[in-house]
Amino acid sequence: MTALTTAPSARAKAGRERSLLDLVLRARELSILGVLVVLVAVTAAINPGFLSAQGVEDIFLNASILALLAIGQTFVVITRNIDLSVGSVVGLVAFVTGDLVSAQGGSMTLAILAGLAIGGACGLVNGLLVSLCGVPALVVTLGTLYVIQGLDHFVAHGRQINAADVPQALLDLGSGNVLGVPYLPMIAVLVMLAVGYYLRSYPSGREFYAIGSSPEAARLAGVPIRRRVLTAYVVSGLLAGAGGVLWLARFGTVIADNAHGWELKVVSAVVVGGVAIVGGVGTVYGAALGALLLTTIGSVLVVLKVNSFWQDALIGALLLLAISVDRLLALRMTRILRRRNARHAT
């Protein structure tokens, strides 16, 4: 009788904790959306041209690639790891695929396949070193960041890819639209919905959160930790590769330093979006909103003619604030759960 009553009790406890966590995550995402609305409203009141059709389209186009990278980074961060190489992967993929299609007269399909292959290979190397060799993720991805940057400069050798040499179909991917909706935001939204549904609805998706919440408990529960961490890095690499192809499609002209420093923007978007840097908490929806918020802030500062230095300073401040809020929320949730458990025990 005791065994029969214990199992439902444990499931009920897990359900209560999950409901509380879902409530906190929804609150974080709604707060980001609220800040975004207020920011846009205030800026539009100062400069009505900010909400022109072209201005809004530019914001979503510029946010699309960052959101795509943030979605991949979310996979990694929820497992208590980090990928600092994504910006370098975008730069390498953008130049190599541009060089490939311009020199060989290749097609958009060739560019996409090549970009995914390069990005996936970079993610695989990171994942193998972290999951199988046990090297700290910060060390691994910081090292591969510089290796990939060096490889990018070696391949470029001071050259530049011009938009005139890129297939028109690929350029249309970066500037075209369907019924007035640009392709790039559509791609980012579709990837976000697919990844978000997988992480929430599939047992294997929830295992990523289990690893981040408690690696030891996940191991005892039979979760294949190494395989999941490796998968997270491969997904991050694939989306970074896709981001590199979309970068080429969006801008046409590519040099070796493209997306330089974007790794910090991606991490900032993820953390500001409510994904805990210590793992186990967050959603791809919040990460995408974080990317949109950072992009909007950049556009607002340009419209208001504020020095670009303040953009980096503001992003840094938001990152510190988000980490502090995550810590306070974690402590608050711990106290709430302890009080609930104490009441149920009595």
Rank of each mutant, 00 (worst) to 15 (best):
D22Q: 11
L314C: 00
A111N: 09
R159L: 00
V306C: 03
F309S: 12
G127A: 01
A67K: 10
D326G: 05
G115Q: 02
I112S: 04
V24D: 10
M108S: 14
N341D: 15
T295K: 14
S204K: 15
I255Q: 15
G274D: 02
V271T: 06
G273K: 01
C122W: 12
S268G: 03
A269Q: 07
D22A: 11
R227I: 02
A121R: 10
A288I: 05
R80C: 00
A317Y: 06
Q149Y: 11
L66Y: 00
T346N: 14
A121W: 08
G212D: 00
V125A: 04
L68R: 08
A163T: 09
V42F: 09
P136L: 07
G120I: 06
L173K: 12
A44E: 04
L33K: 10
H157V: 00
D22I: 08
A218H: 04
A14R: 14
V178M: 07
V254H: 11
N341A: 15
N341R: 15
S204C: 02
L51H: 05
R206Y: 00
I118A: 11
A317M: 02
A330Y: 13
V234M: 05
L304R: 15
R219K: 09
G158H: 07
G134K: 02
R159T: 05
A313K: 06
L190A: 15
G55Y: 08
D152A: 15
G87E: 05
G244L: 04
I65T: 00
V235G: 07
L239D: 06
A41L: 03
L246Y: 05
I315D: 02
L289G: 14
L320K: 09
V40Q: 08
W310E: 05
I46F: 12
S31I: 00
L110S: 04
A7M: 14
R80K: 08
A14N: 13
L4V: 12
A210E: 05
T6G: 11
K13C: 09
L318Q: 06
N47Y: 10
A188N: 08
V35D: 03
V155A: 09
D312C: 00
L328F: 14
V166Q: 11
V40N: 07
V90H: 12
V325M: 03
I277N: 04
R26P: 04
T296A: 12
Y198T: 00
A163K: 15
G274F: 05
I277G: 10
S9A: 15
G119T: 07
A3V: 11
I161K: 14
S299L: 01
A210C: 09
T346C: 08
A269L: 04
T144E: 08
I255Y: 15
I187L: 01
V300M: 10
A163Q: 13
G279I: 03
S213V: 05
F95V: 00
V166A: 00
W247T: 13
V254Y: 01
P224A: 02
S85N: 10
G180N: 10
V235R: 02
R339H: 12
R332C: 03
A111M: 04
V267Q: 07
R26N: 12
V139Q: 14
L289C: 09
N162W: 13
G298L: 01
L292M: 03
A103W: 09
L248P: 12
I315W: 05
T43Y: 04
G174C: 07
A291I: 01
L128S: 07
T253W: 00
F251D: 02
A163G: 02
V125M: 03
V302Y: 13
